[in-house]
Each structure stands twice: as C-alpha cells, then as structure tokens.
Design a binder for these strands. Sequence first.
DNA 1: TTGGGGGTGGTAACCGTTTACTGAAAACGT
DNA 2: ACGTTTTCAGTAAACGGTTACCACCCCCAA
Lengths: 341, 341
Amino acid sequence: MARQAGVSVATVSRVLADNYPVTHTTRAKVLRAVRQLDYVANAHAKALAGTGVETIALVLDDITWSAFAQIGAGVEQEAARRGRLCLVCTTQGDRQRELAVVNLMREQHAAAVILVGGIQYTTEYRERMSRFARSLDSVGSRLVLCGRPPLADDLPATVVEYDNEGGAYGATAHLLSLGHRRILFVGAQEGQSTADGRLSGYRGALADYRVAAAPELEREGLFLRDAGLRAVREALREQVAFTAVFAATDMVALGALEGLREAGLRVPDDVSLIGYDDIPMANELTPRLTTVHVPYQELGRTAARLVLDRRDGVGGAEDRTRLSTHVVVRGSTAPPAPGPR
Amino acid sequence: MARQAGVSVATVSRVLADNYPVTHTTRAKVLRAVRQLDYVANAHAKALAGTGVETIALVLDDITWSAFAQIGAGVEQEAARRGRLCLVCTTQGDRQRELAVVNLMREQHAAAVILVGGIQYTTEYRERMSRFARSLDSVGSRLVLCGRPPLADDLPATVVEYDNEGGAYGATAHLLSLGHRRILFVGAQEGQSTADGRLSGYRGALADYRVAAAPELEREGLFLRDAGLRAVREALREQVAFTAVFAATDMVALGALEGLREAGLRVPDDVSLIGYDDIPMANELTPRLTTVHVPYQELGRTAARLVLDRRDGVGGAEDRTRLSTHVVVRGSTAPPAPGPR
DNA sequence: TTGGGGGTGGTAACCGTTTACTGAAAACGT
DNA sequence: ACGTTTTCAGTAAACGGTTACCACCCCCAA
C-alpha cells in the first residue's frame, strides 16, 4: 500500500488519520492509491495500536424473544450513535455458556459486556462472574447487568434494572381492586430472579389486600407459551377455583388464554387475564391484553448510555439505575363474574 | 505475563495453544501464572497473527422486526455452533448507512458480511455494493445477500433467497379459489424488492385466474402496521369494492384488521384477510391469521452455513439457494359473503 | 570420549497500524 | 550569505500475539 503510493507507511497513516501536516501532492498520491487498491485499514491492527473502534458485547438468551430484541435494539442504537460496534452472543439460558462467552468477550477487549435478562444465580456462578467483573474492570472494561439483580455489593459493575416487583404488585393490585380474590399466578420459577420478583410482587399485593396466599394458586412454569397452557389446564383439571390469571409474561398469558378458551371460559367475562412485558403482540390480541409495560428498549439504551458515559469521561454517570414499570389496562381484565367459581 | 511465569513468551503461547511439546513442570508454571493474572490472550493480536476467532457480520434494518430477529437468530446459532462471533449492525433502512457499515466490516476483516432483507436498488448503490462484494472476495471474505435479489451476475457473492413471489402467488390463489375476485393488495412499494416480488405474485395469480388487475386495488404502503390501517381506511373511504385483503406483511395485516374492524367489517365473514411472513403473532390473533410461512430462521442458518462451508473448505457449497414458502391456512380467510360489496 | 539426535525452550521476525523522534530541505531573519 | 526556525517525510519502536529457526542439554551408541 505504502509502496503503491510511493511513500512511507507513516505518511499513509497520517493522511488517513488527517492529524499531521502533509503536502497536497503527497496526500493526493496516497488517496489515489487508496482508491486503486480499495484499501481499508485493518481494524485489528488499529485496535492493537490503541486506536480503533470499540465494541460492546451483548449477551442474551434468545434474540427472537421480543423483550430481548427490544433491549438489544436499544443497546445497538445507542452504541451505533456513539460510534461503537455491537457483538451479540446468545446463550439459550445456559449459564456455563454465558461464562464462556464473557471470557471470550474479555479476549475481544470489549469496552463493555452487557448481560441481559433474569437469571438463576448459583454460588459458583456468582463467584466466577464476580471475578470476571473485577477482571473486566481492571482492564478498563465493564460488566453491565441489565434486567437482573446485582451480583454482590462493592463489585465494579453497572446495574440497570426495572421495577420488576413493583409491576407485579401493580398488576395484582389491579385485579384485587376489581374484586378478584382468587388469582392464579403462572410462571413461578424458584430462584429465577425475574420470576421471583414477579411472584414476590404478587404476594405483596395479596398481603396488603389481606388476601391469603394459596400454594395451589402459584403455578410453576418457564416463561414460554406452552407453560401457560399447561398450567391453566392443570389448574382447571384440579378444580382449583380462580377468577383471574396473572401470567408472569405475555407469552405465558398467550398459553393461558388458549387454556381458558379451550375450557370454554371467556376473557374477561369469566376469567380476567393479565400479562407482563407488554410485548407488541399484547395489544393485538382479542381481547387486547392488560399487562405490565416494561421500557425494554429504554433499558437497553440506558445500559449502553451509562457505560459509554463513564467511558467517555462524562461526569456523574451512575452505575445503578432502576426504570419504572406500569400497568397498561386494556381489555382482558374486568370485575369477576357474580356467579360461582 | 511471561515474566510472571518465568518463561519466554513463546513458551506461554505454546502452552496455551497446546501445539508443541512442553515439560509438565513448565506447563504448570505457565498455567499457574494464567490463573494468578486472570490472563486472557488479546484477540486483536491473535487476529493480526492470523490465528484468532473469526467474526461474521450481520447487517439488517431493525432487530425488533420479527422476521429479522429470526434470521439473526439463525445466523447467530449457526455461527456460534461453528465457533464464530457475530457482529450485528442495524441500518433502519438507510442505504447510505448500509454502505458505510459494510465498509466498516471490511475493516473488521469479517469472515462474511450478511445483508438481510429486501431493498430498493439504485444504480449507485448497486455499483458501490458490487465493488464491496469484489473487494471482500479479494481478501477471502464474502458478501451474502439474504432475502434480497442478486446484485448482478458473475459477482462473487452468495445469495440465499426464499420464494417470495411464489408465496404471494399461493396466497392470492388461495383467495381466488375461495371465490374472491376483488382482492385489495396492501403494501406496494415501487422498487422495493420484497414488495415488488409479492405484488408480482399477486398479479400473476390474478392473471392465471383471468381476473383483471385493477390499479385501485393495489395500495402503496411501507411494511408497517400503520400503513395497513391507512390503506384500508382510504380504500373504504374511496368506496373501493373488495371482499379480501392481501397484506404484504403480517404487520400490515394487523393494521388492515384494525381498519376493517373499525368499519364494522368482520373477518373472515365480511372480508377475508391474508398476511405474509407468518410471524409468531399471526397464530395468536382472533381470528388466527392465514398467511404465508417463510422459514426465516432456516434462511439465516443457511446463509451462515453456506458461507462457512465455503470457508472451511467443505466441497460443493453452492452460492445460491432458494428456500420455499407455503400458505398456512388459518381462520382469517373464507369464501366471500354472498351479498353485495 | 565423542558425535548424532531427540526433546525443550529461547530469539527474533512478522502481522498492520500509530506515533515519538530524527533529519533534510525550505523559508525566514539579519 | 549564513544561522535559525519551520515544515514535512521517513525511521523505528511499540501494541501482543505466533511460529520458524536456532541453541542447548542430555542420552545413547560407536
């Protein structure tokens, strides 16, 4: 390349960086060579030399899940706006793979590693991820926990949460204030941070309304459509009495809706249904699904913003934020039917 | 690092690569140092040296669009399975940005650059992208067109399409065979490859059924929910007669559905509705949406597979594939109502 | 005892870029 | 005309790995 232009490599670099005086004729020679060879600088070499575009890594379970896609979009947009690249890795909920991926990102010298979504912490995972957090910090990078609780106190990591429990409290309170007393919670997962938070909001609201919690109303299940269907079928088969269903996610609500329908129950006339996440689909259902709105895209954007502010030396960048959630009342909730159930 | 272990850098490299005889004691020294320092190799340096993990670049309009997310998931899964990393860039449909992004990926020395989704070709874009295709090829990389038509013949690029026109033909034929004769097509976009293909399939089926095409039945609109709503409203206001709507995408169908509903028209009793894409939402609507299934995830997986096969020297990797589509008949289509419309 | 050879580990060149330092030539002042 | 400053281009070190090549040690056979 330098040979083609008939100058030294240093001159080429200077012309392209445009940060040093170069004669017009020399610059022209270089630019001509650039055009002739379709030359582009090697990003790896630039990175080695300390220049070069930074990349931020995004680690999530599955990009096709609406909430994750929105977080991803938020991160990517903010990253792109500020001249960063975005490396995306999916883990399918496999913690081992997540650890491996974070290690990979450490090799890649990512400016930040953003871990997205709820998780089931184990002691070993906590310890290993904490090491990674410190290790990333020590090389000027940063671990970001987005939509999951902090690993530990005094750990160099940024945490961007949303009011998970509050949303669940609000959803349950909405049903309670409509008059429901037997509310089926679908999607409990012992130890999964998101599920636990939502279940805990549900229980909190029940307690505040002086309604006794009932174990048979708390149904286990993954955050999948199928889990909602199965849970409702089983509850119905077991003749558990309930006038409303609180699905831990909108996807679960979809399954629950099918379960209710196949039993001949109308929503919201016979049974009210409320979801969580406010995915785009929620507003398209019949009836339109009452749910808890979570600002997922903003969550992603915030995660990127905080970590890049800190990096770009913007003062006062916090390292812990919580975005608020709110119930969106639509057509799937109503006062309970007067008759028996 | 080498100092910490008390050996030379060469030895460290050899222990980590495990491709050279090293005494047990020496290896132990190195591994201990690795643990003590939380050492990870610098991926940029490895890349420079020719070792190192390859990355494949994914360029798409918007990751939150269901079809794109699925393609992305397919690419990512296949890439990860074969030990590659995935760089994702979004363009929001901006061709200039797309060109810039491809150039960036050339710098990053991506093993492949996968361009996803339909596009409106211009001469300038064609020429510049063709240069990129050749340029990528010359450095051993490869341009992949996924879900969009080839740029030109004899260009070193891999093309992974789906039978876009065939799907539209099938959808229209489905409506025609039910007895519909006045079918509103919503989502025409002059020059946009996907829209053109679908419109052309629509026209083809009409022609084969000896039904005259009518300009007032072909409505312009982006592939957005809102476009469907507006188009149906306008057609209704203009008193255009139709008994069925063929929406160019499921999102457009969503808008169309709202437009029909607000005019008091029932689907499918008064008007049949068919979409395109078979996004997860389609199966959740009431009535469940008849649509054209496109194997988006498989599309992404295939794109990654073809380009990685070629790279890994697997023989017989084609550079042009077309996946098939098919109509999924659900509840939103029915024979036209006997009365006048 | 010595020469050959296999097993280990070090030395240094290379990947492609940036940049501090150096040096030559041109511009300027006296 | 000569010294000083300024301007521009080249040289080389550094970034952090990989690997070809070389040197050493030790063992064994002649």
